[in-house]
């Protein structure tokens, strides 16, 4: 991991701990790209250690109140505050009941300690193609609410990751909330990942959301991670599902289609060839499981 001379301590920076949201907005406006946002810390500090450098300022969300919520709003959907942790996510009854893919992504995420620290928003902001919750969020569809001094805007998750490690968040903005639309009674979703050992980043992850109607898929969203610079949807494959009954021959078609839509690389966790070979398999399995409405956390 480190090819630089490493050190025990973190590199130097000035820590800002705003107590209110306006104070935070002011700091963001003032320091812009000279500032990193510190939420759970699990991603940021390893990112910093891996490069042995950090922005001059680090803004900690630790003292901001009221951002650690997960609220279900009937008729609307799920709202996840910027500081809500993965542990909160998987303990939330509405998440396990209605947002299976997201629940499963949190269930398999990291380990209990990391889940206590890491936040759902942090996972999205890290803009890593291996991020598990991000994969589920892309399949479910959601909006990221960004706020600066002059107001809020919502960015669709499909437009949020611009490339590896780059998001649509502007330097003066704070990502404050994730909004996931409420699923219909016929919406099905699932998540699956492959890792080297249990505690690991994904070498491949897949999440799907299917709108089902009497065994026929009306609409599908399929998100795949670790096969390109960002977690991505395979839209041609999604289109193949539209209006089709899910059966073995369709699943085979999907698997073939997926292989044509992804461009994985070799890295420490796996190889491009392997990812090409298994992506279709995992997509097939995840779709089958979603369609059958079977959980994968037990």
């Amino acid at each position: 991991m480190s090819s630089h001379m490493s050190s025990r301590g973190l590199p130097e920076f000035e820590l800002l701990i705003p107590r209110t949201s306006p104070e935070a907005m002011d700091m963001l406006a003032q320091h812009r790209d000279q500032l990193s946002i510190l939420n759970g810390g699990t991603a940021l500090w390893n990112y910093v250690r891996g490069r042995n450098r950090v922005t001059p300022y680090v803004l900690s969300l630790s003292a901001l109140k009221g951002l650690d919520y997960i609220n279900e709003i009937p008729g609307d959907g799920l709202r996840i505050g910027a500081k809500a942790t993965i542990a909160q996510l998987i303990e939330h009854p509405a998440v396990s009941a209605k947002y299976a893919a997201l629940h499963e992504s949190g269930y398999w995420f990291g380990n209990p300690t990391v889940r206590n620290m890491a936040t759902v928003m942090g996972n999205v902001l890290r803009a890593s193609p291996s991020a598990d919750c991000s994969c589920a969020l892309l399949a479910l569809g959601c909006q990221v609410i960004l706020q600066n001094k002059s107001g809020q805007r919502a960015v669709d998750i499909d437009d949020f990751w611009l490339s590896y490690d780059v998001t649509a968040r502007k330097p003066d903005e704070l990502a404050v909330e994730i909004r996931i639309p409420e699923p219909k009674a016929t919406t099905r979703s699932a998540f699956q990942r492959l890792t080297r050992v249990r505690q690991d980043l994904a070498k491949l992850n897949v999440a799907v959301r299917l709108e089902m109607d009497k065994g026929v898929c009306q609409q599908a969203r399929i998100a795949i991670g670790c096969v390109g610079p960002t977690t991505m949807r395979v839209k041609k494959t999604e289109a193949l599902l539209q209006g089709k009954a899910i059966n073995d021959s369709l699943l085979e078609q999907l698997a073939t289609s997926v292989r044509g839509e992804i461009s994985p690389i070799d890295d420490q966790r796996s190889t491009a060839l392997y990812r090409q070979q298994v992506a279709g398999v995992i997509v097939k399995r995840t779709i089958s499981r979603a369609a059958a409405d079977k959980g994968a956390t037990q």
Binding site: I17, T42, W45, T113
Partner: peptide
């Protein structure tokens, strides 16, 4: 200190008597 990157768990402490965290990935000031 076992790894400094939150992977080994040697630095695990409890916060508020209940939740475990990696103290190597947590700023003291927070």
């Amino acid at each position: 200190y076992g790894c400094g990157s939150g992977e080994c768990g040697g630095c695990t402490v409890l916060i508020n008597g209940k939740d475990n965290i990696n103290s190597c990935l947590t700023l003291a000031a927070e």
